[in-house]
């Protein structure tokens, strides 16, 4: 067991009263596991990820990583954002080296590591390009490499492919699985797409309407790469979609 979330609760103070985003969320993530979190819009998925990343604090509950209580951001957790959040004034290489610069890694090691990561995410030839010269898919490759450069134990991804077109998205899913298999990282991946979750995850965590906790967990022990056209894929997809639809109350 590596990431442990226990009875997490998050309430945002409002002008009057409070908005309870998350209520009683408990989850253990095993080392090397690929977890997808699914849930209706506004149910608190981003909030959970931000709390794990240390960008936000919970109202109550306990989160620990390998037994260590999480207090603030740390290089043991890497985050990948839907909006990419690359530094526009830095080249691809310099974006990837950002975390290593902060940790005062010697220049030579820094270069070697960034070169390896550039190869890992398939960005050879674009080392000196700036973010505005890259396509969405390439930007997110930089985002992934940048997060990996700190050698985190766990990768937190908030709808990382949400801004990409369908084709690029499918390709990036395959690429991510390849990277995941090569680096053996633990991944917590948030998505709106049931299809994406079934394609990627070892386990799918489905969250309910606010105040949200876990409604259902699906284990997917299938081998990869998974065949979207297969019967079992389609069936599971249908099942989860039905579950989600039931949860969203008609307005």
């Amino acid at each position: 067991m590596m990431l442990s979330i226990e009875k997490l609760r998050k309430a945002f103070p409002l002008e009057e009263g409070e908005l309870v985003a998350i209520e009683d969320f408990t989850l253990d993530v095993k080392k090397g596991e690929f977890i997808c979190i699914l849930g209706p819009s506004g149910c608190g998925k981003t909030t959970i990820l931000r709390i794990i990343a240390g960008l936000d604090t919970q109202t109550s509950g306990k989160i620990s990583l390998d037994g260590k209580i999480i207090k603030g951001p740390g290089s043991d957790r890497g985050m990948v954002f839907q909006e990419f959040a690359l530094f526009p004034w830095r080249s691809v290489r310099k974006n990837i080296e950002f975390g290593m610069e902060l940790r005062k890694v010697p220049v030579k090691t820094r270069h070697e590591t960034s070169q390896k990561l550039i190869e890992l995410v398939g960005l050879e030839g674009f080392e000196d390009a700036h973010p505005h010269e890259l396509s969405g898919g390439m930007k997110q490759r930089v985002g992934i490499a940048r997060a990996l450069a700190n050698e985190p134990d766990i990768l937190l991804m908030d709808e990382p492919f949400g801004a990409l077109d369908a084709q690029t998205r499918n390709m990036m899913q395959k690429e991510l699985l390849r990277i995941w298999e090569e680096t053996k990282k633990t991944v917590v991946f948030i998505t709106h797409s049931v299809d994406e979750a079934v394609f990627l995850a070892d386990r799918i965590v489905v969250m309910g309407e606010r105040p949200s906790s876990i409604t259902e967990i699906y284990d997917i022990p299938w081998e990869r790469p998974r065949e979207r056209a297969s019967m079992e894929f389609a069936n599971l997809r249908k099942e989860i979609l039905a579950k989600l639809e039931m949860m969203v109350r008609p307005e």
């Binding site: 951001p73 890497g78 985050m79 959040a85 530094f87 940048r146």
Partner: peptide
Amino acid sequence: QPILMDAARTLGAKRGDMFIKVIIPSTV
């Protein structure tokens, strides 16, 4: 953009780093 500061924080930036490596360049 607040998200750039978030990104820097997850990569280990403290207040001083944030100032030098995020605030100054994006203000140029």
